[in-house]
Design a protein around this nucleic acid. Structure first.
Lengths: 193, 193
DNA sequence: TTGTAAATTGTCAAATATGACAATAAACTT
DNA sequence: AAGTTTATTGTCATATTTGACAATTTACAA
């Protein structure tokens, strides 16, 4: 009964438009006006489907985190049972050409975390999953090391990877990718066995 | 002749207010209105002394970079002639409790770099000075290593340090400081000699 | 065809941001 | 005291953003 709802697709379109806007103008700079224009919809429709900008931000965060998790999970699936660490480094520093727009959105969310407690919690958990997974992978290949050493190495690798993304706006990504990879290798080599 | 100019002090006040605003609302979210209110001045005065927001951003960038460079230079001065690397790590990961507001401002500038070429160039140079200095310090204590290895280790240390700041908005700074320090040590220990 | 739920369009009022500029007040020099 | 430079205040026009809501249209079910 009644007209079929386009809420799903419309919401998707709007969120994609929002994502593009955030990458270009930042969270604060993305007015509903701009988002609507970017999505090719009327502002009223944006309001109708997703509410005000705070609602939008919450939805965007969920979406982005889910997307990131999905990518990450898919990546983990591919890792070989043994020699996983080597494949991990290859994947993180050589193959992975993360979408700059996506990176900017995540940066924005991280940045906005300091103002939005709910968001901060989401990002905390997101980061923790990431580092814990990396620690786990390393632990499997290098079981003889203490948890402390493993965490340190894992955090180092995550930092190297994240830093490439964080500094992406500066535009030196290509220049620093190789040093980052080498540094990660050195961290791994510093483990026993 | 004529009334004495307060341009210096006023500009300083305005930039400080701007800095506070940026830390709270982001670059885009800092309207002249807000800045003026934060500075306790009329908006007209803000315009009178520093111009529009693009002018403001340029001035803020110069100021922040100068400030950062000054701090960094002062820090380098203190480093002992030998054993400098150890002191470096101590300083970066244990003593240095960087002002969160200041960090947020730098983050904002880095982030905005992707949209503003002049700013991007400034930040590139700023980052380069930083990593080159670190490379130099390490090179002095570990002269037997190749430039490539030294750069990798230096970039690793810089990444660890920056990452702590980048992730500061997430609020896990304390938790990750020690792993970061240990990872940095491991990188250093991976060098010959 | 009729009822209904949802999409879609359009409009209004209020708040906010910006640029430009006039007018006044203050502080200094000669 | 006169002149000059700058600070300071105030205002006007304009554009943007937002929230709220009314009116209309569309697509489906019975």
């Amino acid at each position: 009964m009644g007209r079929p709802s386009k809420k799903q697709e419309r919401t998707e379109e709007i969120l994609q438009a929002f994502q593009r806007c955030v990458a270009r103008f930042g969270l604060e700079g993305s007015s509903l006006e701009r988002i609507a224009e970017e999505a090719g919809l009327q502002r009223s429709l944006v309001r109708h489907f997703v509410g005000n900008r705070d609602d939008l931000i919450a939805m965007l965060a969920d979406r982005v985190i889910a997307q990131s998790d999905a990518q990450w999970s898919a990546f983990l699936e591919i890792l070989p049972p043994q020699g996983a660490v080597e494949a991990l480094l290859e994947g993180l520093f050589h193959e992975a050409t993360s979408d700059p727009e996506f990176v900017l959105v995540i940066e924005s969310l991280i940045f906005a975390s300091s103002q939005k407690p709910e968001l901060q919690q989401l990002m905390q958990q997101w980061l923790k999953r990431f580092t814990d997974d990396v620690t786990g992978i390393i632990a499997r290949d290098f079981p003889q090391n203490s948890a402390e050493d493993l965490s340190a190495v894992a955090f180092g690798i995550v930092s190297l990877y994240f830093n490439l993304d964080s500094l992406a706006p500066i535009g030196l990504n290509d220049q620093y990718r190789e040093p980052a990879y080498k540094a990660a290798q050195r961290l791994i080599n510093s483990l026993s066995n």
